[in-house]
Design a binder for these strands. Sequence first.
RNA 1: GGCCCCAUGGUGUAACCGGCUAACACGCAGCCCUCUCAAGGCUGAGAGCGCGGGUUCGAGUCCCGCUGGGGCUACCA
Length: 486
Amino acid sequence: MSAPVRVRFAPSPTGNLHVGGARTALFNWLFARHHGGVFVLRIEDTDLERSQAAYTQAILDGLKWLGLDWDEGPEVGGAHGPYFQTQREGLYRAAVERLLAEGKLYHCFCSGETLEAMRKDQAERKVAIKYDGRCRGLPREEVERRIAAGEKFVLRLRCPDGISVEWEDITKGKLTFTSDLLDDLVVVKSDGMPTYNFAVVIDDVGMQITHVIRGEDHISNTPKQILLYRALEAPVPRFAHIPMILGKDRARLSKRHGATSVIEYEKMGFDPEAFRNYLALLGWSPEDHTREILSREQLFAEFSLDRVSSHGAIFDLDKLTWMNAEYLKRFTPEVLLARLRPWLAKIPGFPGGYSDAQLAKMAGLYRERVKTYDEIVANAGWFFSAPQEYDAKGLEKAGKIAGARDLLGRLIGRFEAQAGFEEGPLEALVRGFAEAEGRKFGDVVHLCRLGLSGRTATPGLFEVMAVLGRDESLARLRRFLTVCPA
RNA sequence: GGCCCCAUGGUGUAACCGGCUAACACGCAGCCCUCUCAAGGCUGAGAGCGCGGGUUCGAGUCCCGCUGGGGCUACCA
């Protein structure tokens, strides 16, 4: 038995959950579930300037919306907490003291301006930009004196020269870096907070993370972190760097490409399961790639890091939309109604006098006609309030039907005489009526549709009438009679 | 500038350790169905696998170079 799989998603609360982060979280979650491992959520809030508690909540909400549940982390706790980096200062300090005692760190008093000048010079000389180590050999007395004098300093890790740092990345294969190009990275900032690279390593070690699955933008951080693992004499986890999610121009997805945070997709009316399914297929595919609609159980069963592709993937709203529609089509009317309720509630007049059964039937009528939840809001409003106006094109067409108003009048008479109000008999009635009148069935249908909805496009007329009910249908048609072209 | 990653139709992917007429899906076009709109069914266009060299009987699949794209080069994460 190998050690149990422990993975983590470690966002920093400086914004909402982005689709890139969401996909990273998803892959971690799927990997953990596939292996029966543990999925840890850790909040990296060491950037005091930009971190906000509200964002932490937004990220948790985003993960919950996607249905990604974590086994350890905020709200659920766990044996390896705390799960906020700002609450783990003691752990960092202990590590720092140890490394300092072992001579693996050193104090650096260089100011921002000094460093800037150094980099500018290196840039001009077209040489690798890195800290030149000028504080590396400061005498102990000088260090102590300057600290006592209240000078600001950071702590840097002494990086070995001339060695090659490499690891076998699960998705990228063997990756190699020369330590000569690596900075003596800052481990503790002058405000006393650990830097990202340092905190990550301390926490991944402390939380016994076995696999680090993250975006490939972290590849170049990895050798630095490996050096840190070595300094700490801690086991190095496996790494899997997954490709970025890109905009249509192949640049990393950003606001200018459109919506980037998952909350925006929720607001656009996407179903979380569909969104999650779509995200799973961005950079990964199951062995049988002809199947694309995958339940969470199927994803758990089939997810594997070695089937993650190695190049960036463009986020395709069209395909996401298609997938969303596929999900809607698979829902029963009752399930659809349940998911739709928050959206329906925005419609003036909702729920009118309709029973849940009627509402479910209505949802069912739109199931194959809308691709997102908010489309139904835009299209089904007329169910809840009679039309105040009628589609201009529709009226124009009605005007071309000779004697439309009288025709409609006679049809209303027939409806009034009709005992029940089920779609089958209604259709039979209208077909018979059209034939008797020598009219095209379609003309009669279109006239009714316009009268009932004010629209030229709705679900099937007779199904609509059955849901609206006898009284409402007749009331609407009678009103339409007063404005119907003669 | 330096370092690193990547490269199959418009998009997402597939093609096992080299053997294809390069597959699936989205999107697109046309047709069918039809009371509208959808949905559905059928058909089709669209890549010869970034480019150039190798290796091999044979390469999208291996090697080298180039080009292109992306990422990182912070006391941000």
